[in-house]
């Protein structure tokens, strides 16, 4: 466990899903379903993770600001990559019965600031879509035909910048309505409501994982590049140029490998020029299809 706690050890870990959840009672069914273990309960926010299942989870506490802060903390602590999906899951009030129904929030409005967000790719085949209003005090009137929570707006304000808006999801389970007061909510009820939706949540994750894998393929740097770069003194600019030219070179010569020994005593600019030259020679008979 102690080795796992050192954030440096997470640089190579691939977490596909990061959960930001306000309450422990909401988090437990997810922690158990994906076999997560606590990493650090001495930190600002408790963090759970399982490297094998690719899930990490942070308990943020109640409120928009805490949700944004916790997400940021988790991202930095585990050095989360830019292809990871982020999910804010929790209970919500709603104007309609029954409690226990699950929704994807496709429009999130901050009641306080008026800011509007449209998180995620629509998953309408799996979850009905709803508008959600994030409030700073618990809602008891349910006047509008919308969901009410206390975190999503803060989460949506920040999290799309970690990966992208299409990998940012807000999923809510109805816990209280005009006919079922929020005063009746207990830890056991919350746990029960979420547990009953786990199969649907799993189906949703299956869809999101397809997007994660696609982004991972698009954004990941081949090991060959990282290994190669270690042998030379690339500046940030030349590294950027090298990677761009490498991308083209690899498409043109998919079976070739970059061998540092072929570039002994070369400067980054010489390497870039060499790759450019090879591409140019091949371009004349280039099959673009």
């Amino acid at each position: 466990m102690s080795e796992f706690k050192d954030p440096k050890n997470f640089a190579k870990t691939q977490f596909n899903f990061c959960w930001v959840i306000a309450l422990r009672a909401e988090a437990i069914p997810i922690i158990e379903a994906f076999k997560m273990k606590i990493l650090d309960n001495q930190s600002l926010f408790p963090i759970y993770a399982n490297e094998t299942t690719g899930h990490a989870l942070i308990i943020s506490g109640i409120g928009s600001i805490k949700s944004a802060a916790a997400a940021t903390f988790l991202k930095n602590y585990l050095q989360i990559k830019n292809y990871t999906a982020w999910i804010n899951l929790g209970i919500a009030g709603f104007s309609r019965d029954p409690i226990g129904d699950i929704y994807q929030a496709v429009k999130v409005v901050s009641k306080e600031s008026g800011a509007v967000f449209f998180p995620g790719l629509r998953l309408s085949k799996l979850l009905p879509a709803e508008t959600l209003v994030t409030v700073s005090k618990p809602e008891s009137k349910y006047n509008e035909p919308v969901l009410y929570d206390m975190e999503a707006a803060g989460f949506c304000e920040l999290v799309p910048s970690f990966s992208c808006n299409e990998l940012t999801y807000v999923i809510k389970i109805v816990s209280d309505t005009a006919n079922s007061s929020s005063t009746l909510i207990t830890k056991n009820l919350v746990r029960d409501l979420i547990e009953k939706q786990l199969s649907k949540i799993s189906a949703v994750l299956g869809q999101i994982e397809i997007l994660v894998q696609e982004e991972k393929r698009r954004l990941s740097l081949p090991d060959e590049v990282e290994d190669f770069e270690k042998n030379f003194r690339f500046t940030e600019t030349s590294k950027h140029q090298f990677r761009e030219i490498y991308r083209k070179w690899k498409i043109m010569f998919p079976t070739k490998r970059l061998d540092p020994s072929e570039f002994l005593n070369s400067q980054p600019k010489d390497i870039i020029l060499q790759l450019e030259k090879e591409i140019l020679i091949n371009a004349e008979n280039w099959n673009a299809l």
């Binding site: 629509r122 299409e166 982004e215």
Partner: peptide, 16 residues
Amino acid sequence: ELFNKRHQNFKLQKKN
């Protein structure tokens, strides 16, 4: 407010 938002992913969005 929707179309011009930052951090959208054109490629993923194109799926649906």
